[in-house]
């Protein structure tokens, strides 16, 4: 007799536990406000990454097309993956002195692990992380970028 009571009560307990579970999912289907899906890319306008977000390394230029990179290669050394290559050249200054400036700031986005070490190592705060996250391209070669804009110069007073 005890066995039968146990048998029947186990059935009811089981059914009750199942209903408890269904109550949770039932709650969510009847509360469409809880839906968490974001409609990307429709929400591109409103979708803002946090300021700290590490999207890719950029070399900041001001409106006169000047940057702050002195070509010291500290970032190149700090990078664990060799994602940065600084190619520098010597130019002649008006006063006749030779000066080292960057020719190309090559950045391999495909190798970057977004560790932020290059940014920390830069003595002149020339580079920073942008919040851009749409990096998909059709060809791998497009991921190798030259960060200094054509014709850009070193900013006055930065050394």
């Amino acid at each position: 007799m005890k066995a039968i009571i146990k048998y029947i009560s186990s059935i009811f307990k089981a059914l009750k536990s199942l209903f408890r579970g269904m109550a949770v999912t039932g709650h969510y289907i009847s509360h469409p406000k809880e839906i968490i899906t974001q409609q990307y890319p429709e929400n591109r306008e409103t979708l803002k990454m946090f300021d700290m977000f590490r999207g890719e390394v950029v070399l900041t230029h001001n409106e006169r097309n000047e940057h702050r990179c002195t070509g010291c290669s500290a970032c190149e050394v700090a990078c664990p993956n060799g994602s940065i290559e600084i190619i520098s050249k010597r130019i002649e200054m008006p006063d006749g002195k030779k000066k080292k400036v960057i020719d190309k700031f090559v950045y391999h986005l495909s190798m970057c692990t977004f560790c932020n070490l290059c940014i920390l190592s830069c003595p002149t705060d020339a580079i920073k992380m942008s919040q851009d996250f749409e990096h998909a391209v059709f060809d791998r070669s497009q991921l190798t970028k030259v960060l200094n804009k054509t014709g850009s110069k070193l900013m006055e007073g930065v050394r």
Binding site: F50, M52, F53, R54, N116, L120
Partner: peptide
């Protein structure tokens, strides 16, 4: 993401402390 800029591979610790202060 708000504090250290990355969501999964955070790299927020550096030997000697933290990379940035908290947000």
């Amino acid at each position: 993401e708000e504090t250290c800029g990355a969501r999964l591979t955070m790299n927020y610790n550096v030997p000697g402390g933290l990379m940035f202060d908290i947000h």
